[in-house]
Each structure stands twice: as C-alpha cells, then as structure tokens.
Design a binder for these strands. Structure first.
Length: 281
DNA sequence: ATGGCAGAAGCATTCTGA
C-alpha cells in the first residue's frame, strides 16, 4: 500500500504534474497540502476519473489540505474538533484549513499543514507552537494504542540538524529552533516513528528547496515533509523515499512528494460508497 | 539588512510562504 504526502503549492496550478505523477506511481492514498482553493473549486474530476475518492478542506488563496484515496474514506474530521471550554482557541485554530483526519482501509490517516511561523519573534511563530500543541492534544484524544496511524504532511520543521543543508547558518532560526523541535517531539511523543529515518541515517536528503537563490540547482534544501507512522506499523514498512524528480518539473512545487510502502496483511479491494460518515466543522 | 521566486487576487501591487 503506497501512501504519499506532497505540498503542491496550489493544486490548480500543479494539476497536470500531480495527475502525471499519480499515473506513474499509482499511490493508494495521496495527502496534499497548500491546495490554495475553496472546496467548491477543487478539481476533483481528474482524480475521480483515475478511480480515486477525494475529500478536501480548503480556503481561498492560502493553506488547504486534501486526501485522495483509492479506498473508501471514512470518519472524516476537518480541522480540530470543538472543545467547549476552549472555544475561542478552537475558532482561531480552525480559521486556517490545515488538518484532515480520516480512516482509510483500516488506517487512520492524518494530513497536516503545520504553520510556517515566519520568524521566531513573530505572532505567527506563537500561532505555530499553539497549533502544534493543539495537534498533540488532538492526538491524545483521537489515537489509541491499537490504532494504525500515519501522520503525514508539511511540518515546516527540520527535526534534526542533519535535515538542513547548512545547519550552522540556520541554527535557532525558523524551522530549526529548539522550541519548534520540542513542540514536534511532543506531538510525536514516542508514539510515532519517522519513516524516512528507518532507512536513511545520513544527511543530504531534502524535501523542500527554496524557489530563490537557485537553491535546487545548488541542492540547498531542507527535509521538512514527513511521514510518521505508529510503532505498530513499523514491521509493515517496506520503504520511504523522497521523489525529488518532481522538483525538476517545469514550474514545479518547491516541495517534492514523500512516499512510503506499507505491506498490509489483508488489503481490501478499492471500494467506493457515497455514504461516507462526515463530521464537518 | 534586504531581496531573491512563486501563487492568488485582480489589474497594480500587496500579502504570504519558508
């Protein structure tokens, strides 16, 4: 079972690249970030024509996440569920569309687009940390020990110095600060493992290259897109690769897709049903 | 210290991203 995450930086601008990649790789589940489009305008038809189901949680111009799946998408939760004693916080954290949680083929698939945070002395940085802390609480509530979980997306954090091309240059800065890494660690909290690091221990592997300063050509990248899996899935994990060839497309996204292969014991046939359970906020 | 590049909105230029 192939599961992918890709920050596409506008699903409409990148549509033909995404469709071509899906035709070649044939992932079972694709989690997209930065779709930059409201749900009514999401281009679902090209995906449906390839036999996929689509669920979206988008907004105008910014952010936006979507899950594309060969299998039935169940128990869809868009954003953070309401916590009554924390209503203001809830409203603020759900204004930006950055989270979809679903059950697909026996797996809990959680697709996140973590805020960038701008710079560590900004209000946006506080929002980023608050968002991550809320994600951690959300996982405490939603995930049990027996759940088979994939937490995927653009985390806008390089977990370790080996995930940055010039760690000394960016030390303590945005996407590399101790505060962000601790907040991420609190999300992971020993319950998940970074798929990529099971297979690759060395530096030099990036998922994002800045559009500016010829960063891709100079291979000055960061590894900020991650697929975390619950411990109970590790024996099923066969591979994790960054599909960096997609960064060489004409007018590419600044991110490359990340892809894992999970060998599931009893894989269901792709199955569609319009009667999905939907808990929409 | 600033801007580089790209996308959306919308029509000149600003906002945001990372």
């Amino acid at each position: 079972m192939l599961i992918a995450t890709w920050n596409v930086n506008s699903v409409r601008t990148r549509l033909s690249q995404i469709i071509n990649w899906i035709k070649n790789v044939k992932p079972d589940i694709i989690c997209l970030q930065e779709t930059k489009v409201i749900d009514d305008y999401f281009p679902s038809i090209p995906f449906e024509e390839l036999g996929y189901k689509v669920t979206t949680h988008g907004q105008k111009s910014y952010n936006g996440v979507a899950i594309i799946s060969k299998f039935k998408i169940e128990n869809i939760i868009k954003g953070f569920p309401i916590v009554s004693e924390d209503k203001n916080n809830f409203l603020e954290l759900n204004e930006q569309k950055r989270l979809i949680t679903t059950n697909i083929n026996g797996l809990k698939i959680i697709n996140v687009y973590v805020p960038n945070g701008s710079s560590i002395d900004s209000d946006k940085f506080e929002y980023k940390i608050e968002w991550l802390n809320h994600l951690s609480s959300f996982l405490d509530e939603q995930v049990t020990e027996d759940d088979l979980v994939c937490l995927v997306g653009d985390f806008n954090i390089a977990p370790f110095d080996i995930d940055i091309h010039s760690p000394q240059k960016y030390e303590g800065g945005i996407m590399a600060s101790k505060i962000e890494r601790e907040a991420l660690k609190n999300v992971i909290k020993g319950r998940f493992i970074d798929s990529f690091r099971i297979f690759e221990k060395n530096t030099g592997h990036w998922s994002w290259w800045d559009y500016r300063n010829n960063a891709y050509e100079l291979n000055k990248g960061w590894r900020i897109d991650h697929i975390y899996i619950s411990m109970n899935l590790t024996s099923k994990l066969k591979s994790c690769v960054i599909e960096r060839s997609q960064r060489e497309n004409l007018q590419p996204s600044d991110h490359a897709p990340v892809l894992i292969n999970l060998e599931m014991d009893e894989q269901n046939e792709p199955y569609f049903d319009d009667d999905d359970d939907l808990f929409e906020i």
